[in-house]
């Protein structure tokens, strides 16, 4: 009797759970699942953004097709491969730099010194500035004629003539990476700092008593202990960097030198009104990121298993 009452109570609770989940699930289905499914479907058609309703099913032609002995479609387009290479370069270099610099800043913030409060507040400033604003700020600082960066480097004698940071194909991608590092390092620093603050005091006490060099302490004590937090930060940032759009679009537009997968997909979709190929480009980006996510998850699981053994 009591068990049956308990049972019905549990059932009622579960019903409530789904009832209260329903609005959220409904909204997420509309804003995430449905558009994603439609993008997938559109990528198999020759739809155009302007003229809806005239789309024809074309199979995988937007991705890859052999016609008259030549290959067509995105996967045969050197521009898509260039965008992939730019995106991977952007993601790898910016995340590597952010982790090194972020860890350095976190170590400083974890030390006791007079201006710690100021430093902690200052770290939040680049993070708080909207991406579009930081892109514009840096685009102005990197201006080829009137920019302060060229002026400073000329005064210091580091360069002989002003450089076109954003127009020069050899420099543009690195400039954009540098701005991303400035903007996102604070986030990494905060994650690492949170990990540092949870470390036990006693092993540092022991190391100090034994007179071990701080650099050694960092590499043999601190680094292994904050490794899980670092890995989480790297994965978060890497998957985020792979979809970069605002920064690149505002600083260099659709220029080839900095073209990333997101910028490329939007260009086909909106500028060229080519909903078919544009959707295919979006789907390819989705697939690339999904594959990388799975790899990251596997790596993380290996990490957890490795630590248990």
């Amino acid at each position: 009797m009591a068990a049956a009452a308990h049972d019905s109570l549990t059932r009622a609770r579960v019903r409530t759970a789904w009832l209260f989940l329903a609005p959220m699930l409904f909204v997420l289905a509309i804003v995430a699942l449905w558009p994603l499914a439609r993008t997938l479907l559109l990528s198999l058609t020759d739809a155009s953004l302007g003229a809806a309703g005239t789309a024809r099913f074309v199979g995988f032609e937007n991705y890859l097709v052999k016609d008259d002995g030549a290959w067509y479609g995105l996967l045969a387009d050197p521009l898509w491969w260039l965008a992939l290479r730019n995106t991977l370069t952007f993601a790898f270099v910016s995340v590597a730099a952010e982790v090194v610099l972020g860890t350095l800043i976190a170590l400083i913030l974890n030390a006791r010194f007079r201006f710690r409060g100021l430093m902690r507040a200052a770290v939040l400033v680049p993070w708080a500035i909207p991406t579009v604003v930081s892109a514009k700020m840096w685009a102005w600082m990197l201006h080829d004629q009137f920019g302060i960066v060229n002026d400073l480097l000329l005064r210091l004698g580091l360069i002989g003539a002003p450089l076109a940071w954003l127009a020069d194909a050899d420099l543009a991608l690195w400039s954009v990476i540098a701005v991303d590092v400035w903007k996102t390092t604070p986030f990494v620093a905060l994650l690492v700092l949170a990990a540092l603050q949870m470390l036990p005091e006693d092993c540092y006490e022991a190391a100090r008593v034994d007179g071990i060099h701080p650099a050694k302490v960092f590499f043999f004590v601190t680094l292994p202990l904050i490794r899980p937090a670092l890995i989480v930060a790297v994965i978060f940032r890497f998957l985020d960097a792979m979809r970069v759009f605002d920064l690149v679009y505002v600083m260099t537009g659709n220029a080839d030198a900095t073209l990333t997968l997101s910028v490329h997909a939007r260009q086909m979709l909106v500028d060229f009104q080519d909903a078919g190929s544009g959707s295919a480009a979006s789907v390819l980006l989705f697939v690339v990121i999904a594959l990388l996510s799975v790899l990251c998850l596997l790596a993380m699981r290996g990490e957890v298993l490795g630590r248990r053994q």
């Binding site: 997420l28 509309i30 804003v31 995430a32 449905w34 558009p35 994603l36 499914a37 439609r38 993008t39 559109l42 953004l49 809806a52 998957l239 792979m242 979809r243 759009f245 997968l261 997101s262 997909a265 939007r266 979709l269 909903a275 544009g278 959707s279 480009a281 979006s282 789907v283 980006l285 989705f286 990121i289 996510s293």
Partner: peptide, 17 residues
């Protein structure tokens, strides 16, 4: 998983909607 979606992947579907 939804938070890992690249924004551009839902752009054309969202535009239609």
């Amino acid at each position: 998983a939804v938070s890992m979606f690249p924004q551009v992947a839902v752009l054309s579907g969202m535009f239609e909607l």
